[in-house]
Design a protein around this nucleic acid. Structure first.
Lengths: 214, 214
DNA sequence: TAGATTGTTAATCGATTAACAATC
DNA sequence: TAGATTGTTAATCGATTAACAATC
């Protein structure tokens, strides 16, 4: 008896991250006016291998032409689609300190279609003011704002000791995805997407390598 | 003929990252006054598995006692040592914009023993001023500063189009490790440690998952 | 047609998980 | 001694790389 083969193929996270890198390189090629590109050329441009590039793309479809390569504009568009970047995403930032402020103005988010809509903080001096165009509200107003504005994504840039508490509030407010900068183990229900960005760990990998490779 | 078996065991980067997470949890246990901990308890504290914890530690030695577990203080110290954090590390930041400024004052670096020593920028209005205690110098002074102060690590927080150029200067100045925030493919000689932190990619992994898992 | 390059399958490599003897 | 937990080996799982038929 042959079981119906359902393609429940799991896509490695490394693949998603590489797709993001490919899309930036393709963006560069589009601007340069290049029409066609091979997996080998992409690999060279992003320090990968041709097989890896083709494998990553193969999870999602057949985007190339044998003997020819890939249409640059088309592949670029396809990858942005795969990543969910065919639309703009409204994002809120919790925490209006140095990091939150820097992230609010970070060009790299805007370039990829992420729009910071508001900052939430508990500092009375900041509440009611604006950072450039972006309003700063009290954390107590967060749940209502999320619901009213249908916000799906939040960035948590508060001191570590408040991070879990803030995340709990976000979950209650029905946020779908959280990018957390606090170097703490944070717990969320399994249906919530959580990504931890630990800045210090990155330096620690470097010190480990300095100490051991040399 | 039996070849001499040299233990050139390669340690997964994922292990290093987890060690960093373990060390933070152990720090918490130290402060809580806990004396002994098992691999199972660590695993629970950091969302991992007991086997993973023991495997990660086994790359570096035998730190526990069978039937008992690990001495919290000792294990904490051992892991910091493995990561190279038994010493303080002087770090410079290139780029005094929003992100560079935020990173300069980021507590998470200080807590782990990273000391930001100086910022380098090309903005005439900033050069010669200070950000808190941290002096801002011209990029033209960078090479001399690195050599004089024996700086090993640098953080690159300049606009993407300048990133490779800045990295080249750092390499010439004999820097050993670079943490790069520019979302560009950066090339360095193989003896230089390079780590790319791409903030937008993290949001893109979230949008991908939002789009596909739900 | 000949040359090039894809999409895909098979082989390899590496990391995680499970199992268990060692031992406190 | 009995129970607990480590350190380590073996089994499994997953991701990368290599190879090649398909095909432009």
């Amino acid at each position: 008896m042959k079981a119906l083969k359902i393609k429940a193929l799991k896509i490695p996270e490394a693949t998603i991250i590489r797709l993001s890198v490919y899309s930036r390189y393709l963006d560069y090629l589009v601007k340069k006016g290049v029409a066609t590109v091979s997996s080998g050329e992409i690999a060279e441009g992003v320090n990968s291998s041709p097989a890896q590039v083709r494998k990553d793309l193969a999870y999602f479809g057949e985007f190339g032409t044998r003997g020819v390569g890939y249409n640059v504009q088309n592949l670029h568009k396809e990858i942005l689609n795969i990543l969910g970047l065919e639309q703009k995403w409204g994002v809120i930032i919790v925490g209006g300190g140095n990091l939150g402020t820097a992230l609010t103005q970070y060009k790299g988010f805007q370039e990829r279609g992420f729009v910071i809509k508001a900052i939430f903080d508990n500092d009375e001096d900041k509440i009611g003011t604006k950072l450039g165009d972006i309003p700063i509200y009290a954390v107590s107003e967060m749940e209502e704002y999320i619901s009213k504005e249908k916000i799906k994504m939040a960035i948590v840039a508060v001191p570590s000791r408040y991070a879990q508490e803030v995340v709990n509030k976000l979950v209650e407010a029905d946020i779908k995805a959280i990018m957390n900068f606090a170097p703490r183990v944070i717990t969320v229900p399994k249906e919530i997407e959580l990504r931890n960005v630990d800045l210090a760990v990155n330096l620690e990998v470097l010190t480990f390598n300095l100490k051991n490779k040399n």
